[in-house]
């Protein structure tokens, strides 16, 4: 399973996404990380190029609602059906809204790496 991890928007806090990248690699996933400051359009384009099975967004600046809404819009505009999820500084209260946009999961602040791995393994089985 290939996962494209990315940092959309201008937020430069990348400790979490790098920790997740190492953890997912150790758990046997194929991980590609885009680096910082990517637009949603760039992320979707790269996901297509690398044939990603999942896109993971990491957002800590508080811009998650706006960026997540945009994420689904861009996928729909281009007719692409790659599942996506988001983590970072996400309040519990925003989880529903993000999943409503079309995310397969939204991991709130304080989520353990193992929870993400378990989710992905289950997702893979389905």
């Amino acid at each position: 399973m290939t996962i494209l991890l990315s940092k959309p928007g201008l937020d430069g806090h990348d400790v979490g996404v790098k920790v997740l990248a190492y953890a997912l690699k150790d758990a046997g996933f194929n991980v590609i990380y885009t680096g910082l400051r990517k637009s949603i359009e760039e992320i979707v384009a790269q996901a297509e190029v690398v044939n990603a099975d999942m896109i993971g967004l990491s957002i800590l600046s508080g811009t998650h609602l706006i960026l997540c809404q945009r994420m689904q819009e861009v996928l729909d505009e281009r007719g692409i059906a790659i599942p996506w999820l988001v983590g970072g500084n996400i309040p519990h209260g925003d989880k529903g809204a993000i999943e409503g946009f079309g995310a397969v999961a939204a991991f709130p602040t304080g989520t353990k790496v193992d929870e993400v791995i378990s989710f992905l393994k289950e997702f893979q089985m389905e």
Partner: peptide, 22 residues
Amino acid sequence: DLPTQCGFDSDDPRTLGEVGRV
């Protein structure tokens, strides 16, 4: 805010949702 830190004006499309946020 991040647009100021990264060198984008507030009216730049790349600042979507970031103006005055942090």
